Amino acid sequence: MTDTLAPAGPFSAPERDAVYRAIKTRRDVRSQFLPDPVSDDVLRRLLTAAHHAPSVGLMQPWNFVVIRDPSVKAQVAQAFSRANEEAAAMFPAERRALYSSLKLQGIEQAPVNLLITCDRTRDGATGLGRTHAPDMDLHSTVCAVQNLWLAARAEGVGVGWVSIVTDADLRGIFGLPDHVVPVAYLCIGHVAELHTEPELQVKGWANRLPLDDLIFTDRWGQH
């Protein structure tokens, strides 16, 4: 294989601005999904973006399970409902009412659901870059999720991450082998509007932290 190099200079100003716009306006979508189908071409572009994510040792540990079957979505929605009831009871009383008022999934409303998994055997027993950091395969898979999410924003497609569901339920519904870990269950569909700020901030659950408070120099805690 011939090694080729390409210029590494900055993007043009409009290209750069588009990247930052996708980053800053990306939202976790739960209730704004339109019924319009997501075309195969658009979905393919999103999956291609995910597949071009960085992965340690070029292990590419991800797989993508595309779900359109309403009966499968219904099983996941039931699993979410069980987990969500358990989750509500974990919050203090003063937060419980607000938690229960939040819409935290769009499983059956979104035209497409997507399960992104991590195959923990993909790079063999000793993978490059995992000898001392064995969870890098999981971290690499999350990079694929982020790539897909930003590409979706550029396409005018909304994405919502459903985290309130157990691994055991996802394993059972999708027949995952033991060495495959469910990393992200996503709801995907076209949207007409997005919140200008994160929805949980709009609803009063949390606020974005000041960046300067999170930056240290040379060692922990040193601003």
Rank of each mutant, 00 (worst) to 15 (best):
R95E: 14
R95T: 04
L98D: 13
S100L: 15
S100Y: 00
S100H: 11
K103I: 14
L104F: 05
G106N: 11
I107D: 08
I107M: 13
I107N: 08
I107E: 10
Q109L: 15
A110H: 06
V112C: 01
L114A: 08
L114K: 00
L115F: 06
L115W: 07
I116H: 03
I116A: 11
T117C: 01
T121Q: 14
T121W: 07
R122Y: 04
R122P: 01
R122Q: 08
D123Y: 13
A125I: 10
A125P: 05
T126P: 00
T126W: 08
T126S: 08
T126I: 15
G127W: 00
L128R: 06
L128C: 02
G129Q: 03
G129T: 06
R130D: 01
T131G: 03
A133P: 01
P134E: 09
P134T: 02
L138A: 09
L138P: 00
L138D: 02
L138H: 07
T141C: 15
A144I: 08
A144P: 06
V145K: 12
V145A: 15
Q146M: 13
L148C: 07
W149P: 02
W149S: 13
L150K: 06
A151G: 12
A151Q: 10
A152S: 05
A152C: 05
E155R: 07
E155D: 15
G156D: 13
G156C: 04
V157T: 09
V157H: 03
V157W: 02
G158W: 02
G158R: 05
G158Y: 03
G158K: 04
G158Q: 09
V159T: 05
V159A: 07
V159F: 06
G160S: 04
V162G: 07
I164C: 09
I164M: 09
T166A: 14
A168C: 01
D169L: 03
G172S: 14
G172E: 14
I173Q: 03
F174T: 09
P177D: 11
D178Y: 05
D178M: 08
V180N: 09
V180M: 13
V181C: 01
P182Q: 09
V183H: 11
C187D: 07
C187E: 07
A192K: 12
E193N: 01
H195E: 04
T196H: 03
T196P: 00
